[in-house]
Amino acid sequence: MGNTSHGAHEHHIIPLKTYLQVFAALIFLTFITVAVTWFDFGAFNAVVAFGIASVKAALVLAYFMHLKYDNMMNRVIIGTGVFFLLVLWFFSILDIVTRVSEQSTL
């Protein structure tokens, strides 16, 4: 198929080695995710877990999903999605934490 055509596709091809390195990093980070639960960071437990997950997510997005080499628009699209998700989170939680309740919720 299509072996006669050339020039139309200048897609960046990520080398095999990079994929394997990213995979190794992801496995390492998964181990870290589990390992940090052996320690207690108090209020920061959730932050640490969430931070590691976000690093992993960023690796998947940048390399496996090729965003690092993709055009700006696709990054904007995914960024917009995340931003408006934060909006939903922010205002919902804003309501919950600023409620003045007379009795316990349960």
């Binding site: 696709n74 699209i77 917009t80 999605g81 995340v82 939903l88 989170w89």
Partner: peptide, 23 residues
Amino acid sequence: EGVWVFLCTEILMFGGLFVAYAI
């Protein structure tokens, strides 16, 4: 680009669950 827009909708769909979880 169409696939990325679709993924954006997926993020918001799962996001609803994550926000409920956070609360």
